[in-house]
Each structure stands twice: as structure tokens, then as C-alpha cells.
Nucleic acid binder design. Structure first.
Lengths: 194, 194, 194, 194
DNA sequence: TCGTAAGCGAGACGGTACGTCTGGTCTTGAA
DNA sequence: TTCAAGACCAGACGTACCGTCTCGCTTACGA
């Protein structure tokens, strides 16, 4: 109920949809985002170009649909251990995601595209992959001691340093997730009234 | 001596060089980075295409040369007042740079391009606009109380949250530079042995 | 009986057939033969594309069925008056048909398509619109004085000059049907043994 | 003097021009006019598509430039013998041209395209291959006895019957050039005042 | 004061992706 | 079984830009 208004016609091919999403996943790894073309995607998927354009407007849109499901998994950390341990684990996962993961490469490509394309900006704003995963961890931390700052600020402080370091092309080895975690939690304690 | 091995020939036209740099500045504002083409730059500058290719390989290179001089100015804050004031001022300048400045738009375009293009990544790594400006402020803060963390980490913690928030497309109005400054300094105090 | 072998099922929709034929007539006038597409015909007729393909293979076939009935009427001349008058009337009708009539435009389009497509060539060879109408007139002329040449040659001599002049894009105003009629009959007399 | 207004730039490649014209000649024979595409021409010529579009708008234009030079040769008859002989020779050449010659196939394709495309119509009107060749023969005939009809009508009467017979898809074997020639000349005599 | 040599604007070159269009086929559910 | 609808794969359309090349011209320097 409620999902269709179509009165007839051949239904959308789920096979074609999956082929396109897989093709995009593969091509991102093989040739990179810039060299990925709508033409190439269609050919790799064994699909007509019109079929691609019928369901997606841009390669960014396809990539978003193809990659963002995986991202959530890679950024979740187990609910074991104390706050320091969980924050440290999260920052490790975040670093891994942004530097070596395929889904992370897709995410970086989308953030990059968003700087020049309002449509893509809206797309990534609509599902805040990094923020959502950070807030899960922040929720657990807040169970022990209430956050002394806004959730927005806490999220930015947790994700921001790592995000900046990697996106701006600094050497990831200079990053110390354990140290960053300590800094992050120290602030929380400092500002929490005893 | 020492700079040339040319035995003759017409010298490089300084006029052509300036025209290209101005054209890139203008075009970035008018059409954006993605829609900016080498062809368009040459035409806008009233210059042959070969002349552009002779001196720069990519539009990123031209943009870097054209914009990065301005960036330093926009990110410098006066050495007045206490640490909280200076850090707050810096975060305000950083926010302004990343959201509304033309030089900032150029910087964001270059960071974006760097995610897909190693040559651009190297380019922006060679001159760390944000980090350099941050370290000036950190130097002044360190004069009062020594930094309890590495300079790299302090830089990331200062710049990162704002960088992440804006680049990832969050609403800049949710950002409170004054609050972020307090958080940043609170950590320094907390971890500094009394 | 005798026309169908179908064992059941929905009968062919006469309404759909008529809609397609009308759509082709209209489209030929509105957009011309080259810009007429099977897709456009189906949409204009409010009919499924498969329905068009089910009953006709090409747009030429549809056009042939749609237009060739009218052609006979436009090329018939009354059996009044002497040979010169009838031949003159016929050449006038022929000129009108090839230059201004919709059915004539359809005929020209089919002749054009036939130059490149054997199937269309066979189609127009199967019903010799121009030849048939010419032979009606020739039959009446032959009643007065027997033709001194073959029917084929007489047909070609009667129809050819006008056909050539118009199809090859000459100015139709340079054509003098009355004069052509005289020329045509003069030959008949000259070669008819007294 | 007087031929150029260009102020610079790489000159047009005569090699590319020739390659395109040859490609069109070949493709017309191999795949026919309808299946000949601008893309195919460019690929066959080993030339960029833009290069084709830069100098010609349509395949008809290329074909015209490629074929019309040959056409003149094939339609010229030696100035030997009497009028009957020359007219007969001409009609034989015309029949050969329209039925078996490659240049003739190009001409038929252009006439066909002209029925639907005003630009092509203008093109073939600008150089009246058939008419020009016919008028050469008519000039020689007129040297003996002045034409009793207009040149236009004489041209149409000479070329028309054969043109019609072949273009409308009749069997060329029913055509008797010698007989047609006699008919044509008989008229001239009949209407010429003694 | 010339010749050599490099830079200059212009623009054609062979390529290739763009997003759209049509072709002809296939697959639904309703009639 | 036909019908309207519309998705499917394939591929040509004409345009834009890529990076290279080839012109004739314009500067410089050094013999």
C-alpha cells in the first residue's frame, strides 16, 4: 500500500539496479571517482545508459546509494569497556575508515564533490554518517557523566581532529588516537562540575 | 646567474601570467571549480591555451598559485588580549574563511580535488595554510603555559572541529567559536600539571 | 471464414488501427517523414508501441497504408474533352499532387525511402500509383489513335518530365503542363503512320 | 589575395578532408546512405568527430562534395555522330549512372534526402548534375535544328522518362534508350517548322 | 644587425564523455 | 490474445573540453 501510483508498464529491474551499484563500487576502487563516468558505469554494469539516467541523476547519487550502507558497519564499535576505551576504539575505526576503507573512499569523494555541488552537499547532509556513528559513542559516554557541552560541539570535537588531519592530507601516522581520546575526555571532566 | 640555461628566445610574458591568475580568481567565483576549464581560463585571460599548459599542468596548480597568498592574511589574528580571546578570534576567522571567503572557496576546492588526485594532495601538503595559521596562535598560547600535547595534536584539535563541521556540510550556525575556544583551552589546563 | 486462424483472445482493435493511420497522416504534415518516429506515432495515436510493431514493420508501411488510398482520387481526371485536354488536365493534377498534396508528400517520402530500402522499393512497386493513373489517361487517348510505342514508354514519357522536374528540386513554375501535353501528343502523331 | 581573413591558427588539414571524403564514398557503397552516420564517417576516416562537424553540417553535404565531381564525367558523351546517336548514348549513360554507378547511388540518395530536408534540396538545386549534362547534349542537337520548345522543357523531356522509371522502382530492362531517343527527336522534328 | 630561439595568440587536430533521443524488445496487469 | 504502459539494452546524436600540434608573429640575446 501507499507506494505506487503506476498504472502499468514493465516494473523496474532489480537486477539492473544491483548491477549498477556493484559497478560503481568496483569502479571507485579501480579508477577512482574522477575517472568514473556515467558511460563507464553503464557499460561495466551491462546496462543501457538511459537506464542509469532514469534512476539516478549523477554518479554521486549512485555512489551514495551504493556505499553508505557499509559505512555504518565500519564505524560502529562494541559497547565494551570504559569511556576511554570506547572513544579510542572509535577513533581507530574512524581513521581506518577514512584512510583505507573503500566505503571511506566513497565518503571522501562525496564530501569532495559536495564542496562544488549543492545537490551533493544536500545528499550528504541528509545522512550524517560520521556524526551518527559518533553520537552512538557519545550516548554511551554520556551515560556515565552528562555532557557539559552541546551534542553538536561534542560531535565536532570528537570527529573533527581526525577528519581534518586526513582530509587535509597530513600524515596519518602523526595521529595518536589514544592521545586524542584522552584529550577529548579530559575536557569533559574539566568542564563537568564535580 | 644560476637560474637560467636558456640561450635566447623571448622571455616569459609577465602580463600573460598575471592575466591567467586573475582569470582563475574570477572564474572560481563566477562558475565554480568544477565548471572551470583550462579552455575557459585561457579564453578569459585572452591567452593561448598552449601558454597556459606551458606553465601549469592543471587548474589546481593555477588556483593554488592564485589564491594561497591571500589565505594567510585572512587567517591571521592580532596578538592582542589573552589566550581565550585570541583563540576565539582565530576560530571566527577560520569559520569566515571556510564559509564566505573566495580564498577559502579555493582552499576547499583544492582539498576536494586532493581526495582524488595525488598531485593536488602533494600540492596542498607542501604549504599547510590552515596548520601554519593555527600554529601562530598556538605559539602565543604556549608562551603562557606549555602545551601538554604534541603540536600536531594541538593543531588538529584547534582546527579540526570547525573544519569538519563546515566541510561535511553541517549548518555553520550551530557552531559556537567562543564555546569551542573554551573547550580547547579547558583541556590544556586540565592536562597541564599544576 | 477463411481470414482467421486465431483460436481466441482479444480481437484486434479497429480503433487502434485507425488511430495509428490518422496519427501518421497528421505527423507527416506536421513534422515531415524524417522526423516521424515509431515512438512518436504510438504516442500521438495513444497506442502502445508494441501495438504498432505488431501490425506494421516500418513507418513506410504505415504511411503506405495511410496515404495511398487518397492518391488515386487526386490523380484521376474526368473523361471529358479531347486528348489534349485530358492529357493537360492530367499533368496539372500530377503537378498539384507532387507539389502541394499531403498524399503526394507521402508518395515522395516513400519514393525517397525506396532508394535506400529494398523493402520500401518493393512496396511502392507493388502499387504503381503514378503509372496506374497515367495508364487510365493513355487508354482513353489510345482509343482515338493507337499508341506507336510500348505502354511502358508512353507512361514514362507522360509522367517522367514532371516527376523529374519536381523531385530533383527544380522550380515548378518553369513547368508548362499545356506545353508538355502538346509535346507528348506531337510525338504520338509524328510516329503514327498516317 | 582576397581569399583569406583568418588571422592565425593551425591551417586546415587537407589530409583530414580527403580522408573524410573517401570514407563517405566507401561507406555509401558498403552500408548505404541510411546506415551511414557522422560517427561512422569520422571513425572510418580516422578523424575526430568535431573535425567532421567543423567543416560539414550533415552527411548529405559531405556526400555532395565527395560524389558530384565524378558524376559529371560519367554523364558526358563524346561529340561524335549524329543527333540520334548522341541522344541514345546519353540515355544509356544516364541509365547506367542511375542504376549501377556509385556516384549515381550518391545522387539518388541526395535526391531522396532532399524530399524531406530543405537544406539538401537547396544543395542539389545549386548544381544540377543531370540537367547540366543533358543541356550539353541538347546544345549539340540544337546546332543542327533549333529547339522548338524551351530549354527547360527539352531537358525535362530528355531526362524525365528515364529518371522516373528508375527512381520509382520500375524494372530498368523495360527501358529502351534507343526507342526513347527516337521519340524525343521525333517530337523535335514534328514541332519544328519546315 | 642579423640569426637563432623561445614565447606568444589562434585555432585545427584526434579523442572521449556528456545527457538526450530513438530503435526494437520485453514484461507487466487489465480487458 | 490484444491492449496501454513503460522499463530494458543498444547506440547515434551534436556539443564541450581534453591535451597536442602547427601556424605566423613577436621579442630577446649573442655572434
Amino acid at each position: 500500500m501507499g507506494d505506487v501510483g503506476n498504472k502499468g508498464g514493465r516494473p523496474r529491474s532489480e537486477q539492473a539496479r544491483a548491477a549498477v551499484l556493484h559497478a560503481v563500487d568496483d569502479l571507485l576502487v579501480e579508477v577512482g571517482y574522477a575517472a568514473m563516468t556515467m558511460k563507464g558505469i553503464a557499460e561495466r554494469a551491462g546496462v543501457g545508459r538511459q537506464t542509469v539516467y532514469r534512476w539516478w541523476s549523477t554518479k554521486a547519487e549512485i555512489l551514495f546509494e551504493a556505499s553508505m550502507y557499509d559505512a555504518g558497519h565500519e564505524l560502529s564499535v562494541p559497547a565494551w569497556g570504559d569511556a576511554l576505551r570506547q572513544v579510542t576504539e572509535y577513533l581507530l575505526a574512524l581513521t581506518r575508515f577514512l584512510t583505507t576503507s573503500d566505503a571511506g573512499a566513497a565518503y571522501r569523494a562525496l564530501v569532495a564533490a559536495a564542496q562544488q555541488d549543492a545537490a551533493v552537499a544536500e545528499l550528504i547532509a541528509s545522512k550524517d554518517i560520521l556524526g551518527d556513528s559518533a553520537r552512538v559513542v557519545l550516548g554511551r559516554v554520556a551515560a556515565e557523566r552528562p555532557l557539559p557541552v552541546s551534542l553538536a560541539q561534542a560531535t565536532a570535537s570528537l570527529v573533527g581532529p581526525t577528519f581534518y588531519w586526513i582530509l587535509s592530507g597530513r600524515d596519518p601516522r602523526e595521529l595518536r588516537p589514544a592521545e586524542l581520546a584522552k584529550t577529548f575526555l579530559a575536557d569533559l571532566d574539566a568542564r563537568t562540575p564535580a
